[in-house]
Simulated assay, not measured.
Amino acid sequence: MEIVEEDIKRLKTGLSELTDPRLLGRNFRHKLIDIIVIGFSTILIGEADFEAMEDFGNEQEIWFREFLVLPNGIPDQDTFRRLFERINPTELKKCLDEWLAEHEKTGQEVNIDGKTICGSGKAGDHTALHVVSAWVTEQNLILGQVTTDEKNNEITAIPQLLDLIDVARDTITIDAMGCQTVLCRRFIKLRRSKK
């Protein structure tokens, strides 16, 4: 997806409705929208950590200044981390979904699979953490994740994951465990709803 200045302006408008999770009454050095736009732009180029957000912001500061305020320059990696740890993910997802909906979705390959997190069952007396994820390999982007108690609960977690993401125009790949009649019917229903 090619991002142009008009896209960023629309994104800023949607983000203006977000609740700022930072402590009220503080003198913020950076605008909420500036931090999110730089962070999201970094993710779109295939980077995802907070250090990369700071680096990309510094590399592209002249470009970002065309549509962002940046009163104190580019935020540092700790500022990105603190904000993204506290922001309401539901509110942010809603803003991004509305923004992305304005781009015609051509379809992509979405992979759905479950994995047990290595070492997650060793600490204490709890069982290992199992996560079912949907991701797009081409963009190196995770669309959503749902945790389950055990590997055999993957089948019940997949419908929950499908409720979180829009894959109606996409090609879905899934392993044999996911090839259940109830799930196949769900995929077909999704596909028909967008025709």
Rank of each mutant, 00 (worst) to 15 (best):
M1Q: 13
E2M: 08
E5A: 11
E5H: 14
E5D: 15
D7Y: 00
K9M: 11
K12L: 09
T13K: 13
T13N: 08
T13M: 06
G14W: 08
L18G: 08
L18H: 07
D20Y: 02
D20S: 10
L23Y: 04
L23V: 12
G25E: 05
R26T: 12
N27A: 11
N27G: 05
F28E: 15
F28Y: 06
R29P: 06
H30A: 11
L32C: 08
D34S: 05
I35Y: 03
I38E: 00
G39F: 01
S41G: 10
S41D: 10
L44G: 00
I45Q: 12
G46L: 06
G46A: 09
G46I: 07
F50K: 02
A52V: 01
M53D: 12
E54V: 00
D55N: 15
F56G: 03
E59D: 14
E59G: 12
F64E: 02
L68E: 08
L70F: 00
P71S: 03
P71I: 06
N72I: 01
I74R: 04
P75K: 10
D76M: 08
R82V: 00
R82I: 02
L83S: 07
L83D: 14
E85A: 08
E85N: 10
E85Y: 05
R86G: 09
P89W: 04
P89V: 00
T90H: 06
K93G: 05
K93S: 15
K93T: 03
K94L: 07
L96H: 04
L96P: 04
E98M: 14
E98R: 14
L100Y: 02
E102R: 09
E102L: 09
T106I: 05
T106E: 15
G107M: 07
Q108L: 01
I112T: 10
G114D: 03
S120A: 07
S120V: 15
G121E: 10
H126T: 12
H126Y: 08
H130F: 05
H130K: 07
V131P: 03
V132K: 02
V132W: 04
S133R: 04
A134F: 01
A134C: 03
V136L: 07
T137K: 03
N140F: 03
I142N: 06
G144N: 09
Q145L: 01
V146C: 13
T147V: 10
D149E: 15
D149A: 15
D149C: 12
D149Y: 15
K151S: 14
N152S: 15
E154L: 10
I155W: 05
I158N: 03
P159N: 08
D163Q: 12
D163W: 10
D166Y: 00
D166M: 00
V167L: 10
A168I: 03
D170S: 08
D170P: 01
T171W: 00
T171V: 14
I172Y: 00
I172S: 03
D175T: 04
C179E: 09
T181H: 14
V182W: 09
V182Q: 14
L183Q: 11
C184I: 15
C184N: 15
R185K: 13
R186K: 14
I188C: 09
R191M: 05
R191A: 09
R192V: 03
S193A: 13
S193T: 05
K194N: 09
K195N: 12
